[in-house]
Design a protein around this nucleic acid. Structure first.
Lengths: 339, 339
DNA sequence: GCGCCTGGTCGAATCGATTCGATCGCCTCT
DNA sequence: AGAGGCGATCGAATCGATTCGACCAGGCGC
């Protein structure tokens, strides 16, 4: 019997007599042949069925961030039914090592996803463009040949800031995500604003000024982690002219600030109001509920999946923006009348 | 010029004149050929360079577990230099859906890793055996044709229990990981012990009896999460004959029990001692430090990587067991003299 | 009874890179 | 000057599956 008949038997498609099919399957069992080799199929199809996902700077850090996890979960759920697998690609964490992970250069993948679209001059984008791999950029600056998925960061942060304004706050500080790959930590002077290279940080900061607020202090953190939020909170709440409200660019940072306030003996929200961004469940703040800008994380993952789908259907780069909504919790309240 | 020469030019190996090489590269640039197609190379080599990793039941749940994350991080760090990529494969979470993820059946991979080696009759093991894919089982029951990586669960738990005994505790309860795929929650009667199918749970429970202790109560949790630990703690600490010590099978569970104790107004360790397993940093318990059995998580990931390496070097299935050590913190103390 | 149609099977080309052996100049040694 | 040797290049086979067109035999209609 011929190889083509065998192929028909395994694929199931095409005209084949049931008897022949059974004969092929029996022979395969006798020769302990375990079905078609995926590599051959992939070469023929010209498709690997693999989506490379650059998760973040280092896996450990990314995976400690519930935001990444939930988006990734949504992405995998969308990709699964399409018979697509997710290949994990570490971002460039080691400045001494290669600028991009070798996997990004050599691994077989149909589409690449960059989960934290960094700066426009990201070497990863260059590498992917060179290879001609269609790319989905999440929370990055839109580029003509790259699909993008994002949320209304700017509008969301504007809404949160306006909420603080409506409560009478005037001394508002901001705790931000990293400004660029160097991931500094501490107060940012106004003349350092030009190296604000990370798009997501820029957009959320712009949202604050959109509301007509000039922050009394801007604190940069090296990553969205509770401990960095705590450090920021201790510092900002020890300032001589203490801010009455702190708008944070992530929920983890905000929860760190709340913990810092409690440590310093300050009441939330009576002495200081705190707002976040993301809309996570933060059980360790209980009974407090964080005031925050809720973004649809699972839907964001699904949107990335659909952007991938578009590419595989032969369409050009798509562009999606998801809405956010303000959730008012118990960590924001009227500004204290006496400072 | 010929394809073989072009291949030489790109691979760099083999004898080739610098001038020819440059000519090939120029021609490639002119035709915007972006380097060798990985699929062709993989087919020829007979290797995909991909390691499939089954992370756990559902991605969301697995990724909320710092233990999985840290092991995965160690694994990726080891696999990276070997030019191997990690393909994420969701475990079977939906009982209505297929028993194993289609990726496990069809994706190209050189080796598969099952991170939470479940039961011996795991359908995933069957699928992998049918395909002839070398498999590394983590924390599972050793099988002849499968490589295994594990720690001394039993000895570690025995040591922790002996520590409690030495403090004078006699009423010791146990909070366990799931017994089987059905993931029940609640007290386990003695006659239900036979459906204890999950190897890791069994081993850690055996460690307790090894120390000569019969737990006054065994509480099964559906997953290693703080909230499940809290539920367990509330229940166990409300029992009429309250246990004076609770040995938990994970740190997340233990921290939930500590939180529950605090909620109930019990002092730790004066009123109740709590021990964990894993050796995580748990900042939200501060200033308390959990007494726990420390396992080397990053090394575990590296050990999995080496097991993979062995397979690719053509060796048979290897077997590795890593040591654990007891870390005594502030959550265990002498048994209360008056109950 | 003959021709046509159709369901089933087979050959061969193709996807793209690698690699072994062969060939072809050219240089050097005698 | 002729022969041997070596470095560079090329042909062709191979990895394994898919798929299009060809082919063949049996059934049905006229």
């Amino acid at each position: 019997m011929s190889v083509s008949t065998a192929s028909l038997a395994f694929s199931g498609a095409g005209p084949i007599a049931a008897a022949t099919r059974q004969r092929v399957l029996d022979a395969a069992a006798a020769l302990d042949y375990s079905g078609p080799n995926p590599l051959g199929r992939q070469l023929r199809r010209g498709r690997s069925g693999i989506v490379g996902v650059v998760v973040g700077d280092s896996l450990r850090r990314s995976f400690r961030d519930p935001v990444s996890i939930q988006v990734l979960d949504g992405l995998v759920s969308t990709l699964g039914p399409l018979d697509l697998g997710v290949l994990l690609i570490p971002g460039s964490s080691d400045p001494a090592g290669p600028a991009v992970d070798p996997l990004l250069e050599t691994a077989a993948m149909d589409v690449a996803v960059i989960m934290w679209g960094g700066t426009t001059d990201d070497p990863m984008l260059g590498a992917l463009r060179r290879r001609g791999t269609p790319t989905v950029l999440v929370e990055g600056q839109p580029l003509p040949d790259v699909a993008s998925v994002g949320i209304d960061d700017r509008g969301g942060m504007r809404e949160a800031t306006e909420h603080l304004l409506s409560l009478g706050h005037t001394r508002i500080a901001s705790v931000t995500l990293p400004f660029d790959r160097s991931r500094g930590e501490g107060l940012v002077a106004l003349d350092q604003m030009d190296h604000l290279n990370w798009e997501i940080t820029r957009r959320r900061l712009t949202g604050v000024t959109d509301a007509g607020v000039t922050p009394v202090a801007i604190w940069e953190t090296p990553a969205s982690l509770v401990e960095h939020g705590r450090t920021a909170g201790i510092a900002l709440l020890s300032m001589p002219e203490r801010p009455t409200a702190i708008a944070c660019q992530s929920d983890l940072l905000a929860s760190g600030v709340v913990l810092a306030a409690r440590e310093l003996g300050l009441r939330v929200p009576e002495d200081v109001s705190v707002s976040g961004f993301d809309g996570l469940d933060l059980p360790w703040l209980a009974p407090d509920v964080l005031t925050t800008v809720v973004q649809p994380l699972a839907e964001k993952g699904a949107a990335i999946g659909h952007a991938v789908e578009d590419f595989l259907a032969g369409e050009g780069p798509s562009r999606r923006e998801l809405p956010v909504s303000l959730r008012i919790g118990t960590t924001t309240g009227p500004a204290p009348t006496v400072s």
